[in-house]
Design a protein around this nucleic acid. Sequence first.
DNA 1: TTGAAAGCGCTAACAA
DNA 2: TTGTTAGCGCTTTCAA
Lengths: 352, 352
Amino acid sequence: MENRQKKKATIYDLSVLSGSSPSTVSAVLNGTWQKRRIKESTAKLIRGLAEEHQYTANLQARGLRSSRSGLVALLLPVHDNRYFSSMAQTFEAHVRGRGQCPIVVSACRDPEEERQTVEQLIAYSIDELIVAGATDPDGVYEVCAGSGIKLVNIDLPGTKAPSVISDNYQGGRLLTEAIVRHFNADDPLQADDLYLFGGRDDHASRERIRGFRAIKRELMDGDADRCIVPTGYSPRTAQTAFEQFYEREGRLPRGLFVNSSINFEGLLRFMAHHPNEMFADIVVGCYDYDPFGSFLPFPVIMIRQDVDGMITKAFDLMSESRPAIRTHVVQPELVPPRTALQGPLDAIKDIE
Amino acid sequence: MENRQKKKATIYDLSVLSGSSPSTVSAVLNGTWQKRRIKESTAKLIRGLAEEHQYTANLQARGLRSSRSGLVALLLPVHDNRYFSSMAQTFEAHVRGRGQCPIVVSACRDPEEERQTVEQLIAYSIDELIVAGATDPDGVYEVCAGSGIKLVNIDLPGTKAPSVISDNYQGGRLLTEAIVRHFNADDPLQADDLYLFGGRDDHASRERIRGFRAIKRELMDGDADRCIVPTGYSPRTAQTAFEQFYEREGRLPRGLFVNSSINFEGLLRFMAHHPNEMFADIVVGCYDYDPFGSFLPFPVIMIRQDVDGMITKAFDLMSESRPAIRTHVVQPELVPPRTALQGPLDAIKDIE
DNA sequence: TTGAAAGCGCTAACAA
DNA sequence: TTGTTAGCGCTTTCAA
């Protein structure tokens, strides 16, 4: 490591080298030089010097001075899940496209952690923030209030900032109906054989459950309000719920509405302890799309939320000066079994 | 929005309110007050005021002054994939545990984008950087050189900074052997019926291929060097490769070593156009674990890389003052079909 | 067309 | 035990 540990060049270094003042150098290097009517020749000289000395602006200094950082953050519940990871992927592309710097962090669905994390982000003077699937969006708002940050909720709505969410009611309907219709007319699914597992008491779950019930009422006899087992968003608790059901009934319901791919992983854990035959005549609907999930040995119908649509809408709202505090709804898409959809990775050019 | 848009409190505000000097306030609020022998009572007073006025430090200012930011970055090839998203999840937990602020960004496996992104991160004065699966780790090093940033490569090794990678040779052997042994002795897999698809000319692929060939030589007759189809890391190109093979041979190989879950998605796309029966007697080995992938209708054997082990090792190296420039190897794990492993999400406490 | 100078909020000598 | 002071590197009036 015989590298010159020499410090990074600053505008002062360039100012000395070029014989101009720091402010001139600054203007040239941050693009405001046209406005300052700086001579093309000085500009060129300075740019050359900057190149030669590998100048890069100190963004902390710039941010401190201008109280904006160029940082745009996405706050996720978790990374490790195809819904949110595709959201991160899409988000990054958008932010890069606007010439800003994307940063993605997760807060584990813990309201306190959400607030603390956002507080940190604010301390770094991030300019804009998209909060996805927050447990307490309004709590996050409070933290942001007065900081001048642009805030949009996504996936789960808040009441203090504009929100963009999926049409979970419609999605719930679509998915439930697809499950029901997947059974043959000669052996139709009964209402008490169609269960919803997963989710919790949040807006998305409530809406999906509402859709689930509505379809049950429209298409089936029997009590539409039963057969709902919230488990929270965790594989473990979902697994437990499936185990308990199985313990009690000696089998699984034939129709299964699983309220997120995370909960679906609970079903995988259950499957690991039981032979494939047990799932021979089961139909699963999963709210959220996972390409591998779509090809399991039983029919899996999925809902893909329009992540790109939601992110796009969120940035539209960001760029409004004073967006209305309302909730925008984006339509999700039904995905039949054995379907491999294109994803955000397909937008990336292949290497080699 | 009748919120006071009043500016955030600074140490000067608190200095006035408390009657102490800014430096005292600063010391109290950043933990160096013990060292400065500040009276417990003044400290308490100041902390009270800070609380009351919701003071939070301006981290840009602190970073500018101290030329460290508290930011620790992870550079990923892509987000949208269970290997890297679990890496992000694990990384965040580690960084949070050290009281720093994690930020995760992706660079699409593009060497130029990798360098530019890192340059930006440096401009924000990040303190430490983990570069995962970089196409050009040494290029990234060059950008970091002289910036004082701690750098560790992970997943794919470099020659200029310490690296932590999986034992891809051993993993390749494990996986290949498991595929071969999955076939019955009365109808064993032939060498020309065992193909490796995916990957490209990087260290990981080369090592896996070396393991693949070694096992072929040890366990099978025939040419061990054939049957290798690199496709790059993209679903699309992998799909094309499968299609072309099928076009040519009228079937798929019975033994399939797929060089990453991303390439496995290419196989999914192929599957979407062909009936399940075509895959009836196929055995797939996938280098990388995906819980849903493990339960597909044919036997899928997977390799799970020890993400937590690698991240832990990486941070160990970071904390060494001058770590040796060498490559540390971590053992991956073979995952039999139909296995639902615990992941980083399981470390998160369940809500509700 | 350019320069001088103030200051963003914080830290860390050095004084007192 | 605490205050004074000088910047960190940049932007941005205001003057020239």
